[in-house]
Nucleic acid binder design. Sequence first.
DNA 1: ATTAATCATCAGCTTAGCTTATCGATGCAA
DNA 2: TTGCATCGATAAGCTAAGCTGATGATTAAT
Lengths: 303, 303
Amino acid sequence: MINFTIKHFRYFDALARIGHFGRAAEACAISQPALSAQIKELETLLGAPLVERTARKIRLTTLGEEFHIRARKILSDVEEISELARLAGGPIKGTLRMGIIPTVAPYLLTAIIHRLSIEFPDLEIHPRETVTQSLIDDLQQSRLDFVVAALPISEPSLREFALFDEEFVLVRAQKDAAQPVPSPDRLQQMKLLLLEEGHCFRDQALSFCDISKSDPTLRMEGTSLSTLVQMVNAGLGLTLIPEMAVPLETNGTTVSVAKFAKNTPKRTIGMIWRKTNPLETQLMELGSILRQLGQARPGTRAP
Amino acid sequence: MINFTIKHFRYFDALARIGHFGRAAEACAISQPALSAQIKELETLLGAPLVERTARKIRLTTLGEEFHIRARKILSDVEEISELARLAGGPIKGTLRMGIIPTVAPYLLTAIIHRLSIEFPDLEIHPRETVTQSLIDDLQQSRLDFVVAALPISEPSLREFALFDEEFVLVRAQKDAAQPVPSPDRLQQMKLLLLEEGHCFRDQALSFCDISKSDPTLRMEGTSLSTLVQMVNAGLGLTLIPEMAVPLETNGTTVSVAKFAKNTPKRTIGMIWRKTNPLETQLMELGSILRQLGQARPGTRAP
DNA sequence: ATTAATCATCAGCTTAGCTTATCGATGCAA
DNA sequence: TTGCATCGATAAGCTAAGCTGATGATTAAT
């Protein structure tokens, strides 16, 4: 039996992710020779090299790749076992790392943090905002404790906890306000502005209009809902946004906002965490609070 | 993040299984105080006791039970990762990304894959077929593990491993079969069909006939040796092909194949990989097998 | 009360693992 | 090419984690 240490795994994981001895060492808060020594020891223990050292770049060997996958799993499990410590007493405390998607964050994040800081004074929230896929990866590797995103995720290892539903509304230039709200298939022909690739909201909008993801038509894209509304305001086209975004994003613009009469497009925002997280009970409690908070906002309803 | 160590888990697992500090310590081949200290440290890190010390017997707390389950899982995963070490020394396994040039692939690829799958049952070959320059780029950027192409490449960072030599033969229409084999400089004047730009075999053929690459004469080109032979068969001219291609490409045609008497044109097919690749030993072994395989084919000889 | 069993504590030692300084190789720009 | 910058490996020395062996404290059984 080989005497691996968790340090070995931590250091190797940093090296594998960062691909650079010096910077990986920095990330581990140790010196570069210390990291080199540990990696070397790992390779000695294994009897085979894990990384290919070329002049400018390093690359994992096949063994290294395999080792990395398993090491990450172990590190993730160790992260989780640490959570047991918090079960020790009473209300949840310490730090929770929260992921949240960009099409929700601006309208809910401050409210969430504010509310939780009142409910749990000894709890600190570390938010991270990015697209769903990246959040889910981080969640599964225990780099996040929970995520707020659009459901469903449909990962067997993850628990989904629905918070609220919200409709999508149509945002048009002022001059088009008098016209009837177009049907989804009419939207296909119009200048529909979308978020860039990777945002789940983009896919949901495309799906509503029954446009394939691989539709070769080059569409104009924006990096945020805010940008999209500004583009609409400048007369570049029209777009969909979630209802919760309306107050903030249409402020200071002359755009017209319209609801869809029937077949209303909507999404479900929910909380997601690892089923194996020992804090499941506490996360559930936290979810109830977020649900309450979400459903109290204009433009939302119970799922 | 808590600094657990695998030692913590090992010692705790022993204690939880054996239920006795002294004997658990013995099982871990350490002294009893050493084990006590580690368990105590664990409890400090977690902020709660893991074991209830009664006079004669110890008992896990609820937290201890949960911790034990998870610790065992982690230990088991660590055991598993150790297995990687065992496989590291033995025969090569996993995936190897192979590049191969189009003037070799049709006549050798299936044989290579078949042979390697027998020699190394746990090895999977991912082939990629394109012209030399593109393969070499991919190799140097670690998008390929090795390449089969015509030597020399003459890149200092790459290792070349000669496999076999093969001659070029002349392919003519049936009606010309009786005529003597033309000399290289006679070929210059004839309707020589060539592969398109980028194929090393094209350059080798041109070089044999002492034709400059930048010769402005527009020559007829084909996209594959197969096409060239078909064109010859249709009476459009004559061409050179490597000897190994003869059986496959002349099948079903009436073309005439002739060898050159002296100054025989030939090329060396070899294997190429990055000098820095830690799998060098395994690649060398693999090369020996390919060499054996190549030299057993008709129309080849040792380099 | 006495004894045996068991875990905690203490003092002292060994060495794993860290730091800083430096080397040697390699790629890049002048 | 030559000189410079980058990057990983190596070397020497220090610190503290973690071990041993001896001993103490507590409790159950006799």
